[in-house]
Simulated assay, not measured.
Amino acid sequence: MNKNQKPSMSKRRATVAAVLCFVAAIAIAGTYTFNDYRKTQKNELAKAEEKAKQDSEAAKETGTSKIKNEDMTSDTDESDSNGTGKDGTTTDSGTTDSGTTDSGTTGTSGSEGTGTSGSSGQTGTQATAGKSHNINFTEDSYILWPVNGAVIMSYSMDKTVYFQTLDQYKYNPAVIIEGAEGDQVLCGAPGIVKSIDVSAQTGTTVNVDIGNGYELLYGQLKEVPVKVGDYVEAKSVLGYVSQPTKYYSKEGCNVYFEMRKDGQPVNPVEYTADQD
């Protein structure tokens, strides 16, 4: 080796040493940086786990509190709606021992046969009226004449009779009784109002069920004060004589009085008591 080569070798060695030192420094720095990163990640993970645990505990406490509040609300609503507290006592708006509310309306715990509080409809009233009265018309019973007046046309189902307005002969299932407009029409026997109909022939017609298949029909009425389901006594006012329909215009004001047994017409005169 000559003199010119010695400095070059020394310079190379110095360069390699510098490079090695630099690489070592970088490695050492990288090691510290990686360790710091792992430590930071570990701390962050620990914090996240702690926060999740706290959130879970808080959620459980909130859910428990909500359930308790709902239970309390349910108990309060039940007490308000039933009028009875949890300890079995009755509130001011509840049912008293007599089965009647403070407003005087009979509740479901009241006497037998009464509907629910404040909802006694017409149908219930009719059923009660029908069951509380005994209607028992038989072959030996009598009926009263519905209006004072002469018989214009007699009952006739075995032969035809002449209808003046219609100018023809027909069977007549009823008795046509003369009356003045506005006269009272009285019920002939105790019964239940079965129907109130309006027809072209007999006008407003009241049908009264008097028991055992017997019915009394009163036609040519107006201003009827009764309704279907009403119980009516004998001599009760069923209505008033109206103007005749076009089928009886020549006969004049009258009462159409028909009696039926099991849906078939019978002669009402045979069941009429002696008139006073």
Rank of each mutant, 00 (worst) to 15 (best):
N82M: 11
A18C: 08
T91D: 06
K131T: 09
T31D: 07
T105Y: 09
V23M: 14
K227E: 13
Y155H: 03
D75Q: 13
D71K: 15
N43S: 15
T125P: 07
N207C: 06
N172Q: 13
P146T: 07
V232M: 02
G130L: 11
T40Y: 07
A174E: 10
I176N: 12
G188Q: 07
L144K: 15
S98K: 13
T116R: 11
T76Q: 07
T62N: 06
G229H: 07
F163S: 04
T73N: 06
D140H: 05
E61F: 02
D274T: 15
Q122K: 15
A17I: 12
S79K: 08
P244W: 02
V208G: 01
Y214W: 06
R12P: 00
C187G: 09
A27S: 13
T245H: 01
T106W: 03
Y169H: 14
Q220C: 02
E112A: 12
I176G: 03
Y248P: 12
A52C: 08
S120E: 09
E78P: 00
D92C: 11
G229P: 08
N4I: 01
M153W: 00
V185Q: 05
S111D: 04
I135Q: 03
R38E: 11
S154N: 14
A48M: 13
Y142F: 10
G115H: 05
A127T: 11
R12F: 09
A127E: 13
L217H: 07
E178P: 09
T84H: 00
K11M: 08
D102H: 05
T272W: 11
S93G: 08
Y169D: 13
K227L: 05
D197M: 12
G182Y: 03
I196R: 05
S109V: 05
G110K: 00
T245D: 02
Q164Y: 11
V232A: 03
Q275E: 15
C253L: 09
N134K: 10
S117F: 03
T84S: 02
T116I: 08
G211C: 00
K246T: 14
E139I: 00
G213I: 00
G130R: 11
D92F: 13
V226G: 01
